[in-house]
């Protein structure tokens, strides 16, 4: 595991470069949208954060299923290393969405299907972290957390398809569908998505290193 610190440092430096390019592009090279003006810049934070929150939980669901089937402790550790990262992205998604909603929709929040299911996703992340901490080193902890993640992952298709299944204030997806979003906005969006992904890998590797060291110490004691 001696390669771990070197690897997360590389990802961290890569993240800093991407953040620099993204911020420069968003603030100095992005034209105002014909309807939204410069508030369109919020999209570069909101949309990648929403994607990260969604896909991290999806990955957590797959890892939890893997744990339930194989009972390999490493899968549980990987899930716990990931989940707090998703929690932060879910919070960023909700807060930036609210800050975008106020000038565009005239309201900070509505209980429509997309916003409510995203809020439930945030609560699921929070519940997972609380569950993990509450059960401490109890041997049942991993199975309980994995079962909870798998069950609450039912919310993911609702988050994804809520804008198609119900009438919502939130616009339908399709950012990368040709003609829906201008290329002037797609490039910074892709840069911030890469930044969030690279930053997530950095934090994941840091947390994984910490959790593995902790696990080794516990093994030595017992």
């Amino acid at each position: 595991m001696s390669w771990l610190p070197r690897l997360w440092k590389v990802f961290f430096l890569f993240s800093l470069v991407l953040l620099g390019i993204g911020l420069w592009w968003a603030f100095f090279n992005t034209p105002p949208d014909y309807q939204q003006g410069y508030s369109v810049r919020i999209m570069f934070m909101h949309v990648p954060a929403a994607w990260m929150a969604f896909w991290i939980y999806f990955l957590g669901g797959i890892l939890s299923l893997g744990f339930i089937l194989t009972r390999r402790g490493i899968l549980s550790i990987i899930t716990f290393a990931l989940m707090p990262i998703g929690l932060v992205f879910a919070a960023i998604c909700i807060v930036t969405g609210s800050l975008w909603g106020k000038p565009m929709w005239g309201t900070w929040w509505v209980w429509d299907a997309r916003l409510t299911s995203t809020f439930i996703l945030f609560l699921s992340y929070l519940a997972y972290v609380i569950l993990w901490r509450a059960w401490g080193s109890n041997p049942k902890r991993d199975l309980i957390c994995a079962s909870f993640t798998l069950l609450s992952a039912i919310n993911l298709p609702i988050v994804k398809f809520s804008v198609e299944w119900w009438y919502t204030l939130h616009q339908p997806s399709g950012l990368f569908t040709q003609g829906k979003v201008d290329d002037a906005f797609r490039f910074p969006l892709a840069i911030f998505l890469l930044f969030f992904a690279s930053f997530s890998i950095t934090i994941f590797l840091m947390r994984f290193q910490h959790l593995m060291e902790k696990e080794k110490k516990t093994m030595r004691r017992t």
């Binding site: 810049r41 934070m45 960023i92 930036t96 800050l99 934090i203 290193q209 910490h210």
Partner: peptide
């Protein structure tokens, strides 16, 4: 409020949250 305020608040919240996550993970590692 002008759009700039909403934009700055969004970027400020997002980047501060990520910075806190980084610091928290760093402290745990030390």
């Amino acid at each position: 409020m002008s759009y700039t305020v909403y934009v700055l608040l969004s970027y400020g919240f997002a980047l501060c949250s990520l910075a806190l996550l980084l610091v928290y993970s760093w402290i745990k590692l030390k």
